[in-house]
Nucleic acid binder design. Structure first.
Lengths: 234, 234
DNA sequence: TAGTGGTCTAGACCACCTG
DNA sequence: AGGTGGTCTAGACCACTAG
């Protein structure tokens, strides 16, 4: 029964998923330890480890030293959303990218952004085949990214320039639905208070903020992605 | 210089990120191969491999056999969005969860869902501290999940029941902003055409669809998550 | 076709945690 | 205290692909 040998970690992953799937290992069940599985599959423990770790990353398994590996009770689905450069996002849809700077000045950020220090405020419109696509409203920390002061942002968007210039260590991001305000509805060819999709994002480089941006998309925008990353199906 | 030895894969990861960060290895640069790095760091190649693979997963590096490993030109940020059970999502916010079934019947799904066969149609409202939270409009494929026909869904939501009962291999998911229709605005205590956040999701088990659901959230809902998963900062 | 990453092995030691 | 996963090693072979 165990003579055949399942030797690749992907094959082991598939077999483990099959057993979970088939309820041989129901939710909450503690599965055999790595040594036993390695013996059963006829492979090295490291190979089993690789397979199980991958499934744990995907949220299908819960692993703890000494306690062992259990099938997750509530397999939390995880969707990975890519955050591309806007120009790329548009061009990948086969559309012609356009960019238009609206304003660029030094100012004091609003209190909700926490800053008392002046920062670079850039607003711009990105278009796809001439139609409004997304409105970018951005604050750049000029202490963290002094080079931004030399950039006019009239041809290259701050969005694009920062990606290749200002690395960050971490960030946070939010998605929401909001009514378009006067500025947004005018720029995006939308009715007043029309529902628009909004992404707000702040990035840090260590302790220092790099940039905070609010992206307001024209009506009809939809983020679409896939659950079950690559080989990790569950 | 190389005598010290960087022996853990996390330390190697940190060091590689530092070099990218410091522009010692600028975007597009091909970094040394694994054997050379292993020699420099005084560790085994497998350890370097683990570190670089992790960074490649995070989108910071691009790796190809024979071509080597390059620093990504456009480090695509990736945000991982958890898709929890609604009850858990509400309770984790410290709110009291409530559930109310609205309708449950067998019907022919609308053509955009591709089905000609009858399916189980369930609509329900989830509440947080008594306030409307999200409206669930779901179709369940009774060929794939026959057990659903025995479930009344009057106490346990389809959302929750399916998670522990109907495994899936993959799915797709979309996020958008939409105006609330009459039904939604009434149930969610929202004005007509108020902007609402909508998640639509379809899951498959192999070739067969499992369920398709549209979740319409009450105004003010916001998805929030972090960029730079865990130890992988970039 | 040769160089690079991808994977596997057999063994070892360590860190963590439950009982 | 002992069992389990986490990691590292030194070496090997394989798979892919750029030149």
């Amino acid at each position: 029964m165990s003579g055949a040998g399942i030797r690749s970690w992907q094959a082991i992953q598939t077999e483990v998923m099959r057993r979970i799937h088939a309820r041989e290992w129901p939710p909450g069940h503690t599965i055999p330890n790595e040594v036993d599985l390695a013996r059963e599959f006829g492979c090295a423990r490291a190979t089993v480890n690789r397979a199980l770790q991958s499934l744990a990353d995907a949220g299908l398994l819960e692993r703890r030293r000494k306690a062992g590996t259990r099938v997750a009770l509530h397999p939390v689905g995880k969707a990975t959303v890519d955050i591309p450069v806007i120009r790329q996002e548009i061009e990948e849809r086969g559309l012609r990218y356009g960019y238009q700077l609206i304003a660029r000045n030094i100012d004091i950020p609003p209190p909700r952004l926490g800053g008392k220090n002046a920062a670079l405020h850039v607003t711009a419109l990105h278009t796809a085949d001439g139609a409004p696509y997304v409105f970018e409203d951005r604050w750049i920390n000029t202490d963290t990214v002094p080079g931004a002061l030399d950039q006019p942002f009239d041809r290259i968007s701050a969005n694009e320039w920062l990606v290749t210039t200002a690395p960050y260590t971490h960030g946070d991001i939010g998605f929401s639905a909001q009514p378009a305000n006067a500025t947004q509805s005018a720029l995006l060819d939308a009715r007043a208070n029309a529902p628009v999709f909004v992404i707000d994002r702040t990035t840090w480089d260590g302790e220092d903020t790099v940039t905070t941006v609010t992206l307001t998309y024209a009506p009809g925008y939809r983020i679409h992605t896939i659950i079950g990353t690559g080989p990790v199906a569950f």
